[in-house]
Design a protein around this nucleic acid. Structure first.
Length: 496
RNA sequence: CGGGAUGUAGCGCAGCUUGGCAGCGCGCCUCGUUCGGGACGAGGAGGUCGCAGGUUCAAAUCCUGCCAUCCCGACCA
């Protein structure tokens, strides 16, 4: 009946302060990180998500980077409606078939049953097609290059924060062109934009390639994808670009008169990247201490923690603000942490939130005219703790952009090394099973859907893509022995 | 839709076997002391025990039904 001894310092209690180790349970780790880093939380309805300010700030940075690239390649933003008449979806046979199982349908409005149900957009090819048909009549109207930032709904059986939620935010590009050559050029251009963005902004080196027929977008002739490797060796499709041929042009009557006065069908494309990319950031860079953000998408690139008590704290805080101002002049995103918490708490908190650089500024530093700098990853001592470097304020300010750039490259190199260590060319089934359990397997495949299905049944691995780069090769299918297709090895992996 | 689990304070949980005042830790509020790796003391606020029935003098606890969520599989950016 005695009161339990104070558990304030017990190991159990300490573990509550940190996230589940990734190696122990990556699923629990992922959920912990999202919660503790205050990126997002679950909404009241199944599969919905509230993106909190810190998570949304990442999305805004990502949006701006992508949007600039879209504008630079001649696209204009527009908005298309959330509600789509159900009949529209049906116009493209493969398209409906692909999306039918995950549609949310509105049957009532204003208290009355609707004459025709409205589908909540799962993607906008159909409405855009309808509008393109109106806007295009001459070859002079082409190409038409549109992008839309919006939300879409796909009724998911098994939601996962950021990776697969019922509603998600994304960008969908839609373009129409005179012929296949022009449309393919666009498809590949935006494919390239995604790949470049992933590497140069998100610091994730992608495997770029084309989807096999079974994995193609519903209604597309060709689908190109960038696939990232997550810390558990699984693949994450992070952006796709589709050549739609004249499929939607036929379904929606998107026609134009060419120079010879003959009526032609336009060739269309579409391409998208979503909030799933935030999931990719978490899973590609994170570690047991939490989030690791690439500097170009980090809401705070540098956090300054003033240290001291009483009057001293006031002085170090003032100096921290001054240094922050100098860094801002260099275009650095800086936060001065003035919360009423202990320094140790703040160090751990910002590590958990993945801030690339931390600056400590205490009375001793102030005296000496220096600051202490530590970076989130890549510079640890024997205990795995970030090394602390003392440098002058001038050194800190002048060198910060270069440090952030170097840090970005470090993350890329780290992710690249990890990916390559977990990738292998595989030529027998037994090795294949072992390989896809923890990484990517490059294997020859016959391309038969039934054969793909057999592989998936046994290993849960699917063909992620046929890489765009790499040596040409052919031989016997790894699973059935039939002659290989595609002229290249196919990347197989388990996928999110 | 199959398999597993859980619903008790903002969060994490105990209490249920054997019915009897609603508990603990963290967080939150106030005051004071603290501040270079997750500070401490004192005081305080906070709960229709998932929902609906039933049994009982008495239900978080026992019985019945329902609902929701999470995890594992089949579909997906």
């Amino acid at each position: 009946m005695s009161a339990p001894k104070s558990p304030a310092k017990s190991p159990q209690n300490r573990s509550e302060l940190s996230v589940t180790p990734m190696s122990e349970d990556i699923s629990a780790w992922y959920n912990d990180v999202i919660a503790r880093a205050e990126l997002a939380e679950r909404g009241p309805a199944k599969g919905t998500m509230v993106i909190r300010p810190y998570g949304y700030a990442i999305w805004e940075l990502l949006q701006r980077q992508l949007d600039d690239r879209f504008k630079a390649t001649g696209h204009q933003n527009a908005y298309f409606p959330l509600f789509i008449p159900e009949s529209y979806l049906r116009r493209e046979a493969e398209h409906v078939e692909g999306f039918a199982p995950e549609l949310a349908v509105v049957t009532h409005g204003g208290g009355k049953e609707l004459e025709e149900p409205l589908v909540v957009r799962p993607t906008s090819e159909t409405v855009v097609g309808e509008m393109f048909a109106k806007w295009i009549s001459s070859y002079r109207d082409l190409p038409i290059l549109i992008n839309a930032w919006n939300n879409v709904v796909r009724w998911e059986l098994r939601p996962r924060m950021f990776l697969r939620t019922t509603e998600f935010l994304w960008q969908e590009g839609h373009t129409a062109h005179v012929d296949e050559a022009d449309a393919m050029e666009e498809t590949l251009r935006m494919f390239g934009v995604y790949d470049e963005f992933a590497r140069n902004v998100a610091a994730i080196p992608m495997v770029r390639g084309e989807k096999t027929p079974g994995e193609r977008f519903a209604g597309a002739k060709r689908t190109f994808t960038i696939e990232g490797m997550m810390r558990d060796g699984k693949a994450l499709q992070s952006g796709t670009s589709h050549y739609l041929g004249t499929n939607f042009a036929h379904a929606f009557d998107i026609t134009y008169q060419d120079e010879q006065n003959t009526l032609q069908h336009a060739h269309t494309t579409s391409w998208g990247m979503s909030t799933r990319m935030i999931g990719a950031l978490i899973l590609a860079h994170g570690d047991d201490r939490g989030l690791v953000l690439p500097p170009r998408l980090a809401p705070h690139q540098v956090v300054i923690v003033p240290i001291g008590r009483g009057d001293a704290l006031g002085t170090t805080t003032a100096e921290a603000q001054r240094v922050a101002g100098l860094l801002r002049e260099q275009g650095v995103r800086v936060e001065v942490d003035v919360r009423d918490q202990s320094p140790g708490f703040k160090f751990n908190d910002w590590e958990l939130k993945g801030v690339p650089m931390r600056v400590e500024l205490g009375p001793r530093d102030l005296e000496a005219g220096v600051v202490v700098l530590a970076q989130r990853v890549g510079d640890e001592d024997e205990d795995g703790r970030a090394r602390k470097h003392t440098l002058s304020v001038a050194e800190l300010v002048d060198g910060m952009q270069a440090r952030l750039d170097a840090y970005h490259e470090l993350l890329v190199a780290r992710a690249e090394a990890y990916r390559d260590e977990h990738s292998a060319r595989i030529d027998d089934l037994e090795a294949f099973d072992a390989q896809v359990a923890h990484g990517f397997a490059y294997a020859l495949h016959c391309g038969e859907p039934t054969c793909e299905a057999t592989i998936q049944e046994r290993t849960r691995a699917t063909p992620r893509c046929v890489p765009t780069e790499g040596p040409e090769e052919s031989g016997a299918c790894i699973a059935c022995g039939a002659p290989s297709a595609y002229g290249r090895r196919v990347v197989f992996a388990r996928a999110y």
